[in-house]
């Protein structure tokens, strides 16, 4: 009897080790299956990234042999007023927009989540996701039209309600243009963020809400003390993604104001584009993109380090 038990054990061990062996030694297919992806990544991601780092120390103009110029590009940027202005613009932009783009979708997600009808929850989510299918460029052009000083919707609306005093040349006024650009996409229910927050809320256990209900907690308190802390994991993810995306926002100012009027809507990404593709200063342009990259890295690191997700909850 004892023998058979041992036999079974041995058989199990043999089977297990064979499996393990198989699992461990499939390096051939392991590497093989990575080849197509890595050819693309090495050629068109890693290698260009290396070029960007290396050539940001040269005076390359795209035609002549590049010469190593050390930190000349970086010190030139350090003394460049336009570059500092563009940094300031993107700073204002990022700070205001990050708050709005996190808060508004979160509030909307909470309101939708607490609807009693599951069907209506779904319908609202679909409604808010629809803008995803309209190409960004189309949205920017519609907003250019909304701001148009002569035939635009915004001025027509102000005229219709008798507030003619507020009629402005929104994109043509250097003091207003940056804020007008930031207002594009109002009311800022970013679909991606909304869906992620909603998923986060669905993960919160039902029992928390029930006990909160028994305590007679108000909606605002529930939002601040239950929902906000419990979706911190999602907040962290979206914070990183939003900042990265805001810092490299080029298309919006390029299409709507071309950086103008004057330099009032310059952002670093746009400056980089102009330097490289209009002035042919590829080396200097890459130095700008390196600085953007470093800023992104530092911000990401700070977020990872100091914002701990408190998603672990034990009921």
């Amino acid at each position: 009897m004892a023998k058979t038990v041992e036999d079974v054990k041995i058989a199990r061990v043999i089977k297990h080790s064979r499996l393990k062996k198989h699992f461990r030694y499939n390096w051939k297919s392991g590497y093989g299956m990575l080849i197509p992806s890595f050819i693309l990544l090495i050629l068109f991601m890693y290698y260009p990234a290396m070029i960007a780092i290396g050539f940001s120390f040269t005076n390359w103009d795209g035609f002549n042999q590049p010469q190593f110029t050390g930190l000349t590009n970086y010190s030139a940027l350090f003394h460049d007023k336009i570059f500092w202005l563009s940094l300031k613009n993107v700073g204002i932009w990022a700070v205001i927009k990050v708050v709005i783009e996190l808060l508004v979708p979160l509030i909307v997600a909470v309101v939708i989540y607490h609807l009693n009808s599951k069907r209506m929850q779904y319908i609202y989510r679909v409604l808010f996701v629809i803008p995803v299918v309209v190409p960004g460029i189309v949205m920017f052009m519609i907003w250019s039209f909304i701001y148009d000083p002569n035939v635009g919707v915004l001025n027509a609306l102000l005229h219709a309600v008798g507030m003619d005093g507020f009629i402005k040349n929104w994109l043509g006024d250097p003091k207003l243009a940056l804020y007008a650009l930031m207002f594009v996409g109002f009311p800022f229910v970013i679909p991606f963020n909304l869906l992620i927050f909603f998923a986060g809320l669905q993960n919160i256990s039902e029992s928390i809400y029930e006990s909160a209900k028994l305590d007679g907690i108000t909606r605002i308190k529930r939002f601040l003390h239950i929902e906000m802390p419990l979706v911190m994991g999602q907040v962290k993810l979206i914070l990183i993604l939003t900042v990265i995306q805001l810092l490299q926002n080029v298309t919006l100012p390029l299409v709507m104001t071309n950086g103008g009027p004057g330099y009032s809507t310059y952002v670093p990404g746009l400056y980089m584009y102009f330097l490289a593709f209009q002035n042919g200063q590829f080396g200097l342009g890459m130095a700008v993109s390196m600085i953007i990259f470093v800023i992104v890295l530092i911000l990401t690191w700070i977020q990872m380090k100091y914002i701990n997700p408190s998603t672990e909850y034990e009921a």
């Binding site: 392991g30 070029i51 960007a52 490299q248 980089m272 890459m286």
Partner: peptide, 27 residues
Amino acid sequence: LRFLGKNFLYMSVVALLMIPGLLTLIP
């Protein structure tokens, strides 16, 4: 699958998520 350097390779792919597309536009 299991093979030598898997985690390193995977992390080097995930790291790309942090690289702004702007960095590689000119190169």
